[in-house]
Amino acid sequence: MLQGSNLECARGDRVLFSGINFSIKPGELMQVRGPNGSGKTSLLRMLCGLTVPSSGEINWNGTSIRSLGADYFSMITYLGHLSGVKDDLTAIENLRITSALAGVAIDEKIAYEALQKMGLEERETLLAKVLSQGQKRRVALARLILVNTKLWILDEPLTALDVSAIELIKNIIERYLAQGGMVILTTHQEIDISATVTHQLYLS
């Protein structure tokens, strides 16, 4: 269970948001909404442990994520709005390396299958620089199929994706939630993901 209490984010003099409270349990989805510049990305980065809230606390099963450190990182998967896909590596190399970084070493066959599931047949061995934005995004999202974490934090996962890919991601997220995963995401698009409980968090 991930719990945020009284979170505040300050950038220099400006307070982006304050007094944010939430808690999310296995199988639950939390959608973070708000206009541009309301601090959605800052909040997600905070929940990953990349930044420290200027006040408030984030707890994983009652323990502060700060003190969990690397143990916390092994339980989450974060996809930022930058995909982390290297232009000079092929789709397969990209996927294998990002998975290895996340602590899951995979062989080429598994990477191949995951990319196929993401609808990237015949693209596996192309350098990422010849792929379109949407295809690069699919390479990044392929990691979700492979990792075995308890919480996904997804920052605008649907940008640049076409209808079929959005449907694909929706299915992946729903299956994950049904297996007891937790998902926190931001998105501009209206997307109807079915979950036992869907929290809405508005930042203004």
Partner: peptide, 17 residues
Amino acid sequence: NDYLDGTLEQILLSPTS
């Protein structure tokens, strides 16, 4: 380069030291 394309975030969030 890793900073600009987002890989550095993934490195920072890796469970490895």
